[in-house]
Design a protein around this nucleic acid. Structure first.
Ligand code: MN
Ligand code: MN
Ligand code: ZN
Ligand code: ZN
Lengths: 146, 146
DNA sequence: ATGATATTGAGAACTGTTTGCAATAAGGTC
DNA sequence: GACCTTATTGCAAACAGTTCTCAATATCAT
């Protein structure tokens, strides 16, 4: 038992194992960042994660957050989004694929899925002679005055 | 007759009228940039436009290109795209709405439309209680080996 | 415990874009 | 056309987000 106060212990352990097996060293910054993305909901940006991390270890640097996000993205642990305007935002890549609707007034991010849209995308790419590697569907809107 | 060598004269004239009526001064940089976006096909970035512009007037600055693109975007003359990674890219906003497929190997941009996808987007936003202001659908893929 | 080296923190560098400011020029008025 | 007001420009500095350089440090296999 290393840290009785750490949250989301099992998720984090899964991820550390995954990284260890991939030949990466399990450093303190990486453990902290992993625990943050495992527990944290939403779509935090690098600065959000950095600020959380600093609470647990004041000497962590923003550069390390960026480096770790890159690593985790390459490992398929997280996904990176580039919503309009702002900095890149991240989320754990556990669940199924989904797309996003962004409230242009509040910045809130709503997730949704549509098998039909996904299928249509494939169909279109296919017709154009392409194979989709990844895609990006973002709806920007405002809440209806019901 | 002001400049017998200028290309895409009528399109450009339409646009200058539009700007003039909106109360903007028709400056040399603006005329040049307008003629470039009116003639140029594709999805050039600010640097592309700048390089073209410099050929016609060596003293034009990149800052003015950015300022003009902002103005033209606000006026609805052009559309701005933020494809993955690179700088913002622009295109004349004459035609109908369309979305993009980007060849991740060559960077080529293929345009497509899908009324069905557009309709589904509306449906989804509606169901979530939102009204779509704009959206972004980008497919990133590679050419099929057929 | 030791050693090889992957990783870190700090800050410089970088890319794309915006901004402050003095100089310039567009276009309305005479 | 000359004159005036002020929008627009060029330049450079500032900015935001991200990546990189490099010496110091920490991980982990032995
Ligand atoms: Mn999400
Ligand atoms: Mn297009
Ligand atoms: Zn999708
Ligand atoms: Zn569309």
């Amino acid at each position: 038992m290393t840290d009785p106060a750490s949250p989301a212990a099992s998720d984090t352990d899964d991820l550390t194992d995954r990284l260890r097996k991939a030949g990466f060293r399990i450093t303190r910054p990486r453990q902290i960042i992993l625990s943050i993305i495992a527990s944290q909901a939403g779509h935090p940006d690098a600065r959000d994660i950095f600020q959380e991390a600093v609470k647990q270890d004041a000497r962590i640097s923003l550069a390390t957050v960026y480096r770790t996000m890159k690593l985790l993205e390459d490992e398929g642990v997280i996904q990176r989004h580039a919503f309009e305007g702002g900095p890149a935002r991240f989320e754990a890549a556990e669940g199924d694929h989904h797309d996003h609707l962004i409230d242009i007034e509040t910045g809130a991010v709503v997730e949704f899925t549509s098998e039909r849209i996904e299928a249509l995308q494939e169909e279109i790419a296919d017709r154009l002679g392409y194979e989709i590697v990844h895609h990006r569907l973002e709806l920007y809107g405002r809440r209806k005055n019901t």
